[in-house]
């Protein structure tokens, strides 16, 4: 099936219905393997077993950024190419990206707790992630505020693009701000990465990617169905006397 065929929502639904169980199953398998590898990976000589939070933390961070990239492409799709599924994809990706960002923050603060003695320090990486999380919440709030999906889509697309431009600037600014203050900066990912650590990490990253793909497809399917219900209900009001 060509990618262009998926532009049709009905064909997309058929595709999603067939793909979701397979993707879900694959996600479970890769997750199981990845977690197993992470268990077998060596402990850190300083941090002990705590370091294994990294296998959840780092992929979450990657995926939280990737979700914004997906939203950016979708935003271009909405504004430039007027692709019928673009705003569905954008709306679906926002809460998922936000959830990954939150997971990254939670695992980060749990990881930092034994090091820092507190759940949160204004570490440069975590702080940037927090700002990203806030941006996701803003996008979700925007989607929830405008009832008409087409109008919400354009507003959210513009916000997403501005965010995509601003995110690197935010990252740079936060780094600069952090070095200026020389806070209690331990740095979570300090040491060079050995292959024994890298391999499970990459498996976990693959598992997270699959998880994202599954959730994204399911959320897009739900959103398409939700819009159909909305259209049917609108038509019911129109055709009633």
């Amino acid at each position: 099936m060509a990618l262009g065929d998926l532009a049709n929502p009905s064909r997309f639904l058929a595709f999603a219905n067939r793909a979701i169980p397979w993707l879900g199953g694959l996600t479970v398998i890769v997750f199981a393997f990845g977690l197993n590898q992470a268990m077998l990976a060596p402990n850190d000589y300083q941090q002990g077993a705590t370091v294994k939070i990294m296998y959840l933390h780092v992929p979450s961070a990657w995926l939280s950024m990737m979700a914004w990239a997906v939203m950016t492409v979708a935003a271009l799709g909405t504004l430039v190419w007027r692709h019928p599924l673009a705003d569905v994809a954008a709306k679906a990706a926002a809460p998922i990206g936000g959830a990954f960002a939150l997971l990254c923050l939670i695992t980060g603060s749990l990881w930092g707790r034994p090091e820092w003695g507190t759940y949160w320090v204004w570490d440069a990486r975590l702080t940037s992630e927090l700002v990203l999380f806030l941006l996701y919440l803003g996008v979700v709030a925007l989607w929830r505020t405008v009832e008409d999906p087409a109008r919400a889509a354009r507003a959210a697309a513009i916000l997403t693009l501005v965010g995509a431009i601003d995110l690197p600037i935010i990252k740079f600014s936060v780094d600069w701000w952090n070095t200026l203050h020389q806070g209690a900066s331990f740095g979570l990912e300090g040491s060079t990465i050995y292959p024994t650590i890298l391999f499970p990490l990459l498996i976990m990253a693959a598992a997270f990617m699959l998880l994202f793909a599954t959730l994204q497809l399911a959320a897009m399917r739900n959103e398409i169905l939700r819009r159909r219900v909305r259209t049917l209900r609108l038509m019911r009001a129109r055709t009633a006397s």
């Binding site: 009832e147 209900r233 609108l234 019911r236 009001a237 129109r238 009633a240 006397s241």
Partner: peptide
């Protein structure tokens, strides 16, 4: 008033007359 069938719809969907 003849709106029984629309009872579950949000009022936002109604026409001015409805």
């Amino acid at each position: 008033v003849g709106l029984r069938d629309l009872g579950d719809l949000p009022a936002a969907y109604l026409s001015a007359g409805q």
